[in-house]
């Protein structure tokens, strides 16, 4: 297939998905998979699973990361550039418009009450997400993970430790633990 048509497809697919997908990165990644694996057959299923794992475990927005892995896999660095542009242009344009209207309507009392009421709603949405994620950690029955959750909360809430320091510390713990496990696995073999 011609390279320029692959690039065009990468750009317009990420642009389209980024414009019309509500509900966060995980949804976009699923849609990228159905587009490039099931519909176009450009990436095979197993490879896509690993690419999604890379997108999910890297820092940054999952929708952007997902677009990058697909772009890289299909067309190398030019693919990355076009996939990122496709993923970022829609939120950039939409939020620039929102920002403009926000400034214009900030003093409007109806908008103010609407936003005031919605604060309780968004608080509930976040509480619900925390409940789902937190119960996942507790159900793992992994004492180290539960300990990290409690310690990170205390450090962040009571001791006001910088979030970046918390993240870096936990990365070190995670790397050490994985290396120890890998070595044990190696020794058993």
């Amino acid at each position: 297939m011609k390279r320029s048509s692959v690039l065009r497809k990468v750009f317009f697919s990420t642009l389209y998905l980024s414009t019309f997908t509500f509900g966060g990165g995980y949804v976009i990644v699923t849609l990228l998979k159905s587009k490039f694996v099931n519909e176009l057959h450009w990436i095979d299923e197993d490879e896509m699973l690993d690419l999604v794992a890379i997108a999910q475990s890297s820092p940054g927005a999952i929708a952007v990361n997902g677009s990058i892995v697909v772009g890289y896999k299909l067309a190398g660095l030019p693919g990355v550039v076009l996939a990122v542009l496709g993923a970022v242009i829609p939120p950039f344009v939409i939020l620039t418009l929102v920002s403009f209207f926000y400034t214009a309507f900030r003093e409007n009392t109806v908008i103010q009450s609407l936003l005031t009421g919605m604060k309780s709603g968004v608080g509930a949405v976040i509480a619900s997400v925390v409940w789902d994620m937190g119960s996942g950690v507790v159900c793992s029955k992994d004492l180290l993970l539960i300990g990290i959750m409690v310690a990170a909360f205390l450090a962040n809430y009571y001791f006001k430790v910088n979030v970046i320091i918390i993240i870096l510390t936990v990365i070190v713990i995670g790397v050490i633990r994985t290396l120890i496990r890998e070595r044990r696995k190696g020794a058993q073999k």
Binding site: M133, G134, I146, I148, A152, I166, G174, V175, T178
Partner: peptide, 12 residues
């Protein structure tokens, strides 16, 4: 492995 350890900190 690193991400597994990070997730609980992120929830907190």
């Amino acid at each position: 492995g690193t991400l597994t350890a990070l997730r609980p900190a992120v929830v907190a």
